[in-house]
Design a protein around this nucleic acid. Structure first.
Length: 272
DNA sequence: TATCAGGGCCTAG
DNA sequence: CTAGGCCCTGAT
């Protein structure tokens, strides 16, 4: 079926914005997203119209919130002051990016793995977990695997994780699996917490520090007041903002601005 | 082939 | 609060 999306929306930029690691782009312009055992194929038809593979009920229930379509990114971009040339350029460059509301468990494990890795390395590690421990799913286009649940991962060992090139992150992942599988950690119950309490709760997991916790808050729980500071953002703050973090003043647009800047830095490496 | 840095975190001091 | 260590990969 066809859906109309009138706000900022660019599939290529969403896929390459560094927040999702299992999106697949096909040669015909179709993008495949997966969350839990739900799969969406989506392709821009013309201007604001998109061809989607799911029915209207699933679009409204799963994918509309997944793409954060209730929020006007146009309005958020409008908050950038005329003096902030760098932010204006980044937002223009990243126009169409959205903050995805992804699965908390997948984001927890993914961002624990992400530390000191490049994006391609993160993708391959996550894919390895899915292929070996996830559920096989079949569509008319491909066979793929869901991201494994805590139960599906519960038999995994540190040795196996190290074979998957997780290195020193292996015990971190193991700790998260054990906490989640045993029920001591219930990520879905944390959704009702305030930003600050959620941020602190996630940090209780071994291997989750400030940056990773912020990423999970933003990319799984939609906490757009939080803006993770990684090595790229840190450089930009130092070189473009005299060491003063520019994001908090955007309130619930902070995480979106952070993502524009991250994508801008990624696509303009070396020419800050 | 060698070197460096990558969507950091933990521990020791 | 800072310094050092950590596993390995991708980029140059």
């Amino acid at each position: 079926m066809i859906v109309q999306i009138t706000d900022d929306f660019d599939l290529q930029k969403i896929a390459d914005s560094g927040q999702c690691f299992r999106v697949k782009a096909f040669d015909d312009g179709t993008y495949r997203f997966i969350t839990g055992d739900q799969i969406l194929y989506i392709k821009q038809a013309e201007s604001e119209n998109y061809e989607i593979s799911c029915n209207e009920a699933d679009w409204n229930r799963i994918w509309y919130p997944y793409f954060d379509l209730d929020r006007s990114y146009r309005e958020v971009r409008g908050r950038i002051g005329p003096r902030d040339k760098y932010m204006l350029a980044a937002a223009e460059n990243g126009l169409g990016i959205r903050i995805l509301r992804q699965d908390p468990w997948e984001m927890l494990i993914t961002f624990i793995i992400s530390q000191q890795k490049t994006i391609p390395a993160i993708k391959s590690a996550v894919e390895t977990l899915a292929v070996n421990y996830g559920t096989q799913l079949k569509t008319d286009r491909e066979e793929l695997y869901s991201f494994p649940s805590p139960q599906q991962l519960s038999g995994i060992t540190e040795e196996i994780l190290r074979e998957y090139k997780l290195g020193y992150r292996a015990p971190y992942v193991l700790d998260a699996v054990n906490q989640a599988a045993s029920g001591r950690l219930n990520l879905y119950a944390l959704a009702s917490l305030s930003d600050k309490k959620l941020f602190e709760a996630l940090k209780q997991v071994n291997g989750v520090g400030e940056k990773v916790s912020n990423c999970i808050c933003l990319f799984a729980y939609g906490r757009t007041r939080l803006a993770p500071v990684d090595t790229w953002i840190k450089k930009v703050i130092e070189q473009k903002y005299k060491g003063k973090n520019p994001f908090p003043k955007y309130k619930d647009g902070a995480g979106i601005m952070q993502q524009y800047i991250f994508y801008y830095a990624q696509t303009h490496k070396g020419e800050f």
